[in-house]
Design a binder for these strands. Structure first.
Lengths: 233, 233
DNA sequence: CAGTGGTCTAGACCACCAG
DNA sequence: TGGTGGTCTAGACCACTGC
């Protein structure tokens, strides 16, 4: 009694079902693509598509020659959208504005120098900005921009376009990392954010790299209490 | 002078390059798959694979008949791994233990009832636990489990296996959402977490749904200051 | 309606690597 | 070294939807 599956979605669902009900327990090797193609009565490419999706989701582990195994510890992956702050505010029905608080060319701290690499210049562009929703503080941005990888940034008027938005549209997409943590508002941050010192603040740290692995920018965003980073799984 | 691209990775990179250098600016329609297949000298399926990847990454927007456009606002997406807490601790070189603080079958609050649906039973399983790394508090977990969708949970000994780990391995994977925010530690949380009241706490709220869209569990995890949620882009 | 992307097929070659 | 997954091909049919 072979299951009749038509598309890769159905095959994916069927395989997921067999994993979930322990017919294919964690760590076990499941049949090869050619076998499954016969069982499901479809082409191997169709099976491949389904299996690749499950592998991308962390449910399967695939290796040439060794075959496909059910992951021992299915890592649940979540997706997080990192929108331009303007769109984030407008999506919530707010009116977005921003103010450039600081623009300077300086020698960045060691942490940022390490990220940007031992580049030719030892300075970088420092930009601080306040993002507002309906004229109320929404987030404080502290940013370093690598002027070696993004020289155009030196000629850009970040009073008009926020660095956040400009960089998203003008730098080559590549890798990066981010980090979300909780902090207490210091006196300076509290003043800018319009909250009290000692209030909780959500700190989002992020850096991006170009295709060559060189740093593009490093940014710290501080959101007043109440703000949350959301994602879907 | 057509670009010679061999595999889908190269085609993806070439298309990304044309978007980045504005030859294909945001909002513009790019050539159809058949055209690109001719230009790159490959099969349409190969182009399709490359374009699908870029669309998944949010860089392209594809519609039948309407063609493929460069996204106006390239939404940067990040990937976040949500590991079992035990593995998270052990990966950091710590020794993991956990303590069940509360196990009860109760009527959950309205928020949770709405998530679990107007199920047959109006009660659910409430589990509170403390996760420790090297015998020091690591995170406090407050969880509701839907006993309609996961009846086996009632017979499970969560002293031995953490609910976190058991659910990952015993419930069908499906959708869900999460939310990360900053809070102040209340007196009760501070006591359990071993920090001071008024310290910042990272709050991770998460709920998961089964394939039918019914709630499986809702959990709130509170981490002491210093902890961060990390992800890669 | 016609052109686009979405998917499937049957076959092929290759890279990799466990046995 | 043989079997596995990774990828590509040339062709086909279909679903959707803007014109």
């Amino acid at each position: 009694m072979t299951a009749a599956a038509k598309g890769w979605r159905e095959i994916k669902a069927e395989v997921a079902r067999r994993i979930q009900d322990r017919r294919w327990p964690p760590g076990s090797v499941i049949p090869a693509e050619t076998e499954l193609a016969i069982e499901f009565g479809c082409a191997r490419a169709t099976v491949n598509r389904a299996m690749r999706e499950l592998a991308d989701a962390g449910i399967l582990v695939r290796k040439r020659r060794a075959g496909t195994r059910v992951a021992e510890h299915p890592v649940r992956q979540a997706r997080l959208d990192i929108p331009v702050i303007r769109l984030e505010v407008e999506a919530a029905g707010g009116r977005y504005t921003h103010r450039l608080l600081l623009r300077a060319v300086r020698r960045p701290p060691a942490r940022v120098r390490a990220l940007f690499g031992g580049s030719t210049s030892s300075t970088a562009l420092r930009l601080d900005a306040l993002h507002l929703a309906d004229d109320r503080p929404y987030a404080v941005e502290s940013r370093w921009v690598n002027t070696d990888t993004v020289p155009k940034a030196l000629d850009t008027d970040f009073d008009r376009v926020s660095a956040n938005e400009w960089l998203v549209q003008n730098t080559p997409f590549a890798g990066g990392q981010y980090r979300v943590s909780a902090q207490l508002a210091g006196v300076d941050v509290a003043e800018v954010l319009g909250c009290a010192a000692g209030d909780p603040v959500l700190l989002v740290e992020r850096h991006t790299l170009d295709t060559a692995g060189r740093g593009i920018t490093e940014v710290r965003l501080r959101y007043a209490a109440g703000h949350a980073v959301r994602g879907a799984m």
